[in-house]
Amino acid sequence: TYTFKVDNKDQAKKAAKWAKKLGLSFQIEKHGDTFKITVQ
């Protein structure tokens, strides 16, 4: 499981695209202005 934080929606979208490309499941949680992405 890999967790990282991004500062904006664009970065969150890029991370989601990357995870989908690799066939991984992911969750994006919004914490105020940051997004926490968990990829597994």
Rank of each mutant, 00 (worst) to 15 (best):
L24D: 01
T34S: 13
Q27G: 05
Q11T: 06
T3L: 04
D7G: 12
V39R: 00
K21F: 07
A15M: 12
K14Q: 09
K30L: 07
T1M: 11
K13W: 09
Y2A: 04
T1W: 14
H31K: 08
G32C: 06
Q27C: 14
V39Y: 05
D7M: 12
A16S: 07
T1G: 12
A15N: 01
H31I: 15
K36L: 15
I37H: 00
L24Y: 10
K5I: 15
G32P: 02
L24S: 01
D10Y: 15
F35N: 00
F35Y: 14
G32K: 05
K5A: 12
T38N: 03
L22G: 02
E29S: 08
Q27P: 00
F26N: 01
Q11P: 01
A19P: 00
T1P: 07
G32T: 02
H31Y: 12
V6A: 04
K17S: 09
Q11C: 15
L24E: 01
Q40N: 10
K17A: 12
Q40V: 11
S25N: 10
I37A: 02
F26W: 06
E29G: 03
K13H: 08
W18G: 02
N8L: 05
D7Y: 14
F26D: 00
E29D: 07
F4E: 02
I37S: 00
Q11W: 06
D10K: 13
A15F: 15
K36F: 15
H31C: 15
Q40E: 08
F35C: 08
G23W: 02
V39L: 08
F26C: 12
A15W: 15
F26E: 00
D7V: 10
A16T: 06
Q27D: 06
K17I: 12
A12H: 01
G32W: 04
A19T: 01
I28W: 04
L24A: 03
D33Q: 07
K9T: 07
T1V: 12
Y2Q: 03
K36I: 15
A12C: 15
K13S: 08
K13F: 09
T34M: 13
W18K: 04
A12W: 04
W18E: 02
L24C: 04
T34C: 15
N8S: 13
E29Q: 08
A16L: 09
A12P: 01
T3Q: 07
F35Q: 01
N8F: 04
K5D: 12
A19G: 02
T1R: 11
Y2V: 09
K36Q: 13
K36R: 12
T38K: 05
K5M: 15
K14H: 08
V6F: 10
Q11E: 10
A19K: 00
K9R: 11
V6T: 08
F4A: 02
D7C: 15
T34N: 10
L24I: 06
K30Q: 12
T34K: 14
S25C: 11
F4L: 04
Q27K: 13
W18S: 02
T34W: 14
T1L: 09
K36H: 13
V39G: 00
T38I: 10
K20D: 05
Q27L: 11
A19Q: 01
L22P: 00
I37D: 00
S25R: 11
A16Y: 10
K20W: 07
L24T: 01
D10M: 13
L24M: 08
G23L: 03
K5Q: 15
A15D: 01
Q40L: 10
T3I: 13
T34L: 10
T34H: 14
D10E: 14
F26P: 02
V6I: 07
G32E: 07
N8K: 05
A12R: 03
Q40Y: 14
F35A: 01
G23A: 03
K9L: 14
K14F: 08
F4G: 01
V6S: 03
T3C: 14
K17W: 10
S25F: 09
T1Y: 13
T3V: 13
K20A: 10
I37E: 00
V39N: 00
L22W: 08
W18T: 03
K5H: 15
K9D: 07
K30H: 06
K9G: 07
A19R: 01
E29I: 09
G32Q: 05
A15K: 03
K30S: 07
